[in-house]
């Protein structure tokens, strides 16, 4: 990314985001009739929603000054739509809509500043969607992926339990479960798995993870109290759930809140539960502002609370999160370690 928009521009973007999204959608309603042709009907809602998600992603990316984030996020958002039959012009039309909306909704200088990264992205759009085929998983990760994809619940759980061998499963999570889940996501994005199949595979994976956690004898109670929650708006919870399980195994007491709870309710729960550490998860750039705001709200409510941020987006925004969180962790094992260390 060559240029990072200034603070005022980002503030203007935050203020005008609803109007911008409305304008983009308005343009899309026009373009739909002339440019892209009708969007496949099962995606109609998604495409409208897509602009809102892209807008939030854009805002978060600019707010957190992320490096090299826009292209992968755009591919992550648009790829599934393209894989499901949107016409080849769709990504360019979408960026055009954003460029027009930015330049017509915001003052010129601001609009230009915000539009520049988009214009660069537009200039470098891949000619084909998806751009490349991900390498298939080999070894145990590949086998675990095959089992969850085929929704072989008991076999997946047994496979994981066998590999754990009654010991700490944290390394298994990072080496087998996370790559298999990522592969599920990639195949969904390429429309090789339907949303139903993806959800099915994820649930089988969750079952296997919980079974393997339950198969290990937890350590003695340490009195550590930890709250594990996804950032508001964050839909991917299994990563956080794995950390929660690992902390419990280490003798901690965990309140796992899971995905997408409102900030106020998470804070209220924290007041009642009074944890020593809170682990907040964000895997999509769009949820980063929510994570930061949640962290600040928790700090305000419980001044002694230690905070850990995790998830791929949090890792990307590590530098900016440093002010609001004590630690940013990359893997489930790191998460477990961080929570336990900070609770002391």
């Amino acid at each position: 990314m060559s240029v990072q928009p200034g603070v005022e521009s980002v503030a203007a973007l935050r203020k005008q985001l609803p109007e911008l999204v409305e304008r983009v959608n308005e343009k899309f309603r026009v373009d739909e009739r002339f440019e892209c042709g009708p969007i496949p009907c099962e995606l109609a809602v998604t495409v409208e929603d897509l602009q809102y998600r892209f807008g939030r992603t854009l805002l978060a990316g600019y707010e957190f000054g992320l490096p090299d984030w826009l292209a992968p996020e755009f591919v992550g958002l648009v790829g599934p739509v393209m894989a499901r039959g949107a016409r080849a012009e769709f990504p360019r039309a979408m960026l055009d809509a954003w460029l027009v909306a930015l330049r017509t909704t915001l003052p010129s200088a601001t609009g230009d500043e915000l539009a520049l990264p988009l214009a660069e992205l537009r200039a470098g759009l891949p000619g084909q969607w998806p751009a490349d085929e991900p390498a298939s998983l080999a070894g145990d990760a590949g086998e675990f992926f095959r089992l969850i994809r085929e929704r072989r619940r008991r076999e997946a759980a047994a496979f994981l339990a066998r590999r754990a061998g009654g010991g700490d499963p944290s390394s298994l999570f990072d080496e087998l479960v996370v790559p298999a889940l990522a592969r599920v996501g990639e195949l969904w994005a390429r429309n090789r798995l339907s949303a139903a199949e993806e959800h099915g595979a994820t649930e089988v994976c969750r079952y296997a993870v919980l079974r393997v956690l339950d198969s290990v004898e937890p350590g003695p109670r340490t009195g550590v109290r930890a709250l594990v929650a996804c950032a508001p708006g964050e839909e991917h919870e299994l990563g956080a759930e794995m950390v929660a399980g690992l902390v419990e195994l280490a003798g901690g007491e965990v309140f796992f809140i899971g995905r997408s709870a409102p900030e106020a309710e998470i804070v209220a729960a924290a007041r009642r539960f009074e944890p020593a550490v809170a682990l907040l998860s964000s895997t999509t750039v769009a949820t980063l502002p929510g994570l930061r705001d949640l962290a600040r709200a928790l700090r305000a409510a419980l001044p002694d609370l230690r905070l850990v941020a995790g998830g791929s987006a949090a890792v990307l925004a590590r530098a900016r999160l440093a002010a609001d969180c004590d630690r940013v962790v990359r893997t489930a094992a790191e998460g477990q370690t961080a929570v336990l260390e900070l609770a002391r």
């Binding site: 308005e26 343009k27 055009d96 027009v100 909306a101 330049r103 017509t104 010129s108």
Partner: peptide, 9 residues
């Protein structure tokens, strides 16, 4: 504006 394929300001 929504009708623009290209916007020149």
């Amino acid at each position: 504006f929504p009708y623009a394929d290209r916007l020149v300001k």
